[in-house]
């Protein structure tokens, strides 16, 4: 029973991890709350869903969804975040809330507030048994994808010129501009790729739960990804995976051993106590010095 719970917790955690990687990448660089992250990538997920309904090749549909997420966040960054980069902390946060509202209302007007069943048609859903515990193949895929993406991104941040530029910008924007880094372009790209990662995470999330609805953006993409990012450490990719696992473990174990009705309340309680004791998260990135 404990082992089965652990397996479930890890699979829930790996779904959150994918969402958290995208969130943390954007969050770590500017340390501005991105309230719109979830709702922006939800639009990409819904585009993929609509294309799959029209019997397009799933890979083309996924690719279109990724591109839509990317372009959307480029536009949002240009018009809602860039002009407010120096305007304190409240104004950009509120602006992001506004963007989240716009995206949510757009989804609601185009696709409606219902819950739809979702199937990506590229993963075969099956499971196998080891002793008494059931393991789904999809869960393994998701875990592999999230860890693979994490390693790939860490390597890219460390060994490519663009990655180094991102690290530089997260330390100081004026200095990186003096070094000849086109800060605006790099920040826009980070936002774009953040949304792309979000779309990947969102699609796998929808595949895992076999449904898509308007709440995947805010409830999971923003809140849970944010919690996981802070739990793991702002700006640290490894931290966001570990933080997401911690979130998944606490959710599953609280709901099976403490109370399933009060699950969210207890998870928040654990979380608040944790960040009061350990405010920088488990793996504080060396670069984050602003908070």
């Amino acid at each position: 029973m404990v082992i089965q719970n652990l397996i479930n917790a890890l699979s829930v955690g790996s779904v959150y991890a994918l969402l958290a990687i995208g969130y943390n990448m954007v969050y770590g660089i500017l340390e501005k709350l991105n309230f719109a992250h979830g709702d922006v990538y939800a639009v990409g997920c819904f585009v993929t869903y609509a294309l799959i309904l029209t019997a397009t090749n799933p890979f083309i549909a996924i690719f279109t969804g990724l591109v839509v997420g990317f372009l959307l966040n480029l536009g949002v960054e240009r018009f809602a975040y860039r002009p407010l980069r120096k305007a304190g902390r409240i104004a950009p946060t509120i602006s992001a809330v506004g963007i989240a509202y716009i995206m949510r209302n757009a989804i609601q007007l185009i696709w409606g507030p219902e819950t739809f069943s979702f199937d990506l048609k590229i993963f075969k859903l099956s499971h196998f048994k080891v002793g008494n515990t059931q393991i789904g193949t999809l869960q393994i895929y998701i875990l592999a994808i999230s860890i693979g993406l994490m390693i790939l991104l860490s390597l890219a941040l460390k060994y490519t010129k663009w990655g180094q530029a991102i690290v530089c910008i997260s330390q100081s924007i004026p200095t990186s501009e003096l070094m000849g880094i086109p800060a605006n372009r790099v920040i826009a790209l980070v936002y774009g790729f953040g949304a792309t990662l979000g779309v990947i995470g969102g699609l796998l999330f929808c595949t895992y739960y076999q449904m898509i609805y308007i709440g995947i953006g805010f409830a999971y993409g923003t809140m849970k990804a944010w919690m996981a990012s802070i739990w793991g450490g702002i700006g640290s990719l490894k931290g966001s995976v570990i933080g997401a696992m911690a979130l998944g473990i606490s959710e599953v174990f609280v709901s099976s051993y403490v109370s399933s009705n009060f699950r969210d309340a207890f998870v928040w309680l654990i979380f608040i106590v944790f960040i009061l004791i350990w405010p920088r998260g488990m793996y504080p990135a060396q670069i984050s010095e602003k908070i």
């Binding site: 018009f79 809602a80 002009p83 407010l84 305007a87 304190g88 409240i90 104004a91 950009p92 509120i94 602006s95 809330v97 506004g98 963007i99 989240a100 509202y101 716009i102 995206m103 949510r104 209302n105 757009a106 609601q108 007007l109």
Partner: peptide, 20 residues
């Protein structure tokens, strides 16, 4: 009511942009 969030969102973004 249907367009409430859209209206509020655009209002917030424009407000923050020009008159925080």
């Amino acid at each position: 009511y249907l367009y409430r969030l859209l209206f509020l969102g655009i209002l917030l973004v424009i407000l923050m942009r020009f008159a925080p």
